[in-house]
Simulated assay, not measured.
Amino acid sequence: MLGSAILKVRSGRATSRTLLAKELGISPSTIGLYVDRLIAEGFLNESGLNQGPMGRPRRLLTTCAEAGWFAGIEFNAERIQAVGVDFSGRASAAESRPLPAEVKAELVIEEILECVQSLSRSMRGPLLSLGLGIPGLVDAQAGVGLLYAFIPDWKDIPVSEKIGSKLKVPVILQNNLRAIALAERWFGLGHDLSHYVILGPRSGFGIAMVQGGLLVEGAHRAAGEIGRWPWPLDGASGKNQELHHALSASATWRRLAGVGPQEKLPPDLRAALASCADIKGQVWDEVCADYARVIGCLQMIADSGVFILHGPLTMLGNRFCDDIVSAAYEMMPALSTVPLKVVPSSLGDDAGALGAASLAMEAWSPP
């Protein structure tokens, strides 16, 4: 309950003892004991006066930024993103590190530890917890990275044990796209949403779903692995292709740029995609139609409030999202009963790291 109280204050939903009692559904006298303890231990401040439209002024509750910090790290086969977030939920430090081609799991672990050490030089207070956004299949409860196809030896890696034993703090794992869903809740468009879907066409293609304010993991922790769907969806190509072969960020750039599948990727994929944002014609329409087919099907399943696009394809802008929606309505008239909305995220490349830090914040409670 103490952890929940801190989360409510940090989110801005509870700025007084009275509001905090209402948010948590407990008596004012009990909340008074909690708040007094959290103030005494240096986690909350109570100062100033907040005069509402009626009644007596209320003293303001805020979190103590210097009480400690949370590290958030997300990686894929190409790079590591890291952020440090203070106790009040403000990102205060960031770092990005490239990974070599054909990187091994052990090097990824070493780089994560070095990133945390580097972040600590810019942060105040003790490190309280580390959140990790891990690609592929994750057993979050056991703290194990189960499988990631783009790092061949990333199989059944006891990540929490390997890293937690060195840092001496809790290490919380989650699939990286589900971590991004938490980043949207704390730092982006999902703050006031209970139903939304993260679209993640990056080196592969996956999604993360939030339903009723909760992350959807699935019975086998594989919810959202749509990149493994056959492509085309009827499976008729005879090439044994999967969806990510055609709709990942790199594959989409190759299609829009009119280059072959073996063409080397540009050093800055985001900039290269930005240069494609004004393309018109058949290729653009075909790409949008492919995304419309996938997202339209997902909407009929999930009935989401909004699909939030992440990754390099956000550089294609609102026009890309709007054209997807238009193509989906034309393709699937039934969508008129479950309206479709697709928007680019306002968060950047560090969204996964911000989400991982959010994961650490949400899971942490005072000892």
Rank of each mutant, 00 (worst) to 15 (best):
M315E: 15
G52Y: 09
E110C: 03
Y34N: 12
S203G: 10
Q81N: 13
N45L: 13
R185M: 06
M300K: 10
E286T: 14
I6D: 12
S27D: 15
A5I: 09
P126W: 01
D86R: 02
A363K: 00
A356H: 04
A93E: 14
Y148T: 05
S118L: 12
L44R: 02
S120A: 12
S275M: 04
A140T: 06
Q51P: 05
A292Y: 05
E95C: 09
G224D: 06
W69I: 12
A223S: 15
P152V: 07
P152K: 15
Q282W: 01
H220Y: 13
D192L: 06
E242L: 07
R228S: 12
R221D: 15
G84N: 00
A223Y: 07
K264T: 07
L127K: 01
R319L: 04
P201R: 03
N176C: 07
F70D: 13
I308G: 04
P339I: 01
L256G: 09
V159Q: 02
L214H: 14
N176F: 03
S120G: 06
A94L: 09
P344H: 07
R221G: 05
Q211H: 09
A292W: 00
G348N: 06
V342E: 04
G200I: 13
H310V: 05
A274F: 13
W253M: 01
R56T: 03
D268C: 11
D36P: 06
W154M: 09
V259E: 11
L60F: 09
A277Q: 07
M54R: 12
F307E: 08
F75N: 07
S16H: 01
A105S: 15
V343N: 11
C276A: 07
A82V: 07
D139V: 08
